[in-house]
Design a binder for these strands. Structure first.
Length: 332
DNA sequence: CGGCTTTGACCAGCGC
DNA sequence: GCGCTGGTCAAAGCCG
């Protein structure tokens, strides 16, 4: 993971690890001046008509034009890379700030944060959606509540939270995620009339993972499951996982079981510059593959980078929603 | 009979 | 110190 996974939860984004820009191959150097092939190239030199001099002039002009275009595209690509780096740095800086903020919550507010934390975060980040991903590097209210544990253990504890939409008539508090859980307690909390159920992972005897499940106070059809810790045993078999997640379509990430079929109604954005886009795939598969050092390829590269962001229908809306949600949460 | 759930009791942290 | 609250324990009951 390149980025702290809290961003998945906090921003409601599912960000695929980006390949660092430094790893990207450098933009191909400008094309060396070379003669473009034309029909005349295949003609017998002895049969060159006298007008070839005019054509050579035209070709030189064309060459200059192509070179200029090549240079322009290279500059555009460099500019885009620069913008991308700047944006990435901003994101990293922002994530670092948040991680620091959440890693040092006000100790005096420990319990108050705990009380409504689940539901409030639900509203801010993942209303009506299943959020997944361990909040590695961002200790939350739940984490700080384990005051009896050594500090190292608290830091190591990974918290992840998922939201599962169920039938309101379904009174159960079970979030089927493929793992085996043993319920060891149930409590009615102050801020929520719905009881909170406490589970321990019974898949492995020594597994330290705990899970708390409670219905959202605002939306009783929404189950909030909070996972604490990391499983110290292999994930359940895919069959188990599939059967386990069948009814609720619920799984988690990080410390909790993985899944790809989440019941997310919230925005999910996948940024993956390491994978070729559809268009790129089509070209490499179906059409002639442009040469890597050709101006056409460079233009294609630029267009792909731009279109991959701007043409993604979910990107702008998800970005706007995430940013506004984050700002709204900070104002509170 | 073993594993799981239920549920009241207990403990610890926090605010007043 | 006391009351409130969240988290955990453990005995009893349930179920296959």
């Amino acid at each position: 993971m390149d980025h702290p996974s809290w961003i998945n939860t906090s921003l409601g984004l599912n960000i695929v690890p980006l390949r660092p820009l430094d790893d990207l191959p450098p933009p191909p150097p400008p094309l060396p001046p070379k003669q473009e092939m034309s029909e005349n190239d295949f003609m017998d030199l002895g049969t060159i008509p006298s007008s070839v001099k005019d054509e050579s002039g035209a070709l030189a002009e064309e060459l200059n034009r192509v070179s200029a275009e090549n240079k322009k595209l290279t500059e555009m690509l460099a500019l885009m890379c620069e913008n991308y780096n700047a944006l990435r740095n901003q994101v990293i800086e922002y994530m670092a700030k948040n991680a620091e903020k959440e890693a040092h919550p006000s100790p005096s507010k420990k319990r108050k944060c705990e009380g409504g934390g689940v539901n409030h975060e639900n509203n801010h980040y993942n209303h009506g959606a299943v959020s997944r991903g361990s909040t590695e590097g961002s200790s939350t209210d739940e984490e700080s509540s384990k005051v009896t544990q050594p500090r190292e253990e608290k830091i190591a504890a990974k918290i992840s939270r998922i939201y599962v939409r169920t039938e309101v008539s379904d009174a159960g508090l079970t979030v089927k995620d493929g793992y085996q859980w043993r319920k060891y307690g149930q409590k009615v909390t102050r801020d929520n009339p719905c009881p909170r159920a406490y589970f321990k992972c019974s898949f492995a005897p020594s597994c330290p993972v705990k899970k708390k499940v409670q219905r959202s106070a605002d939306d009783q059809a929404l189950l909030v499951a909070t996972y604490e810790g990391e499983h110290n045993h292999p994930s359940p078999s895919p069959a188990d996982e599939a059967s386990g997640s069948g009814s609720n379509k619920c799984t988690t990430n990080g410390s909790a079981p993985r899944s790809s079929s989440l019941n997310t109604s919230g925005p999910t954005v996948t940024l993956d510059l390491t994978k070729p886009s559809k268009a790129a795939t089509n070209i490499t598969k179906d059409g002639p593959r442009p040469k890597a050092d050709s101006p056409r390829f460079q233009r294609f590269l630029v267009e792909q980078m731009a279109s991959s962001l701007s043409n993604d229908p979910g990107f702008t809306s998800a970005l706007a929603a995430a940013i506004s949600g984050k700002i709204f949460q900070q104002k509170k």
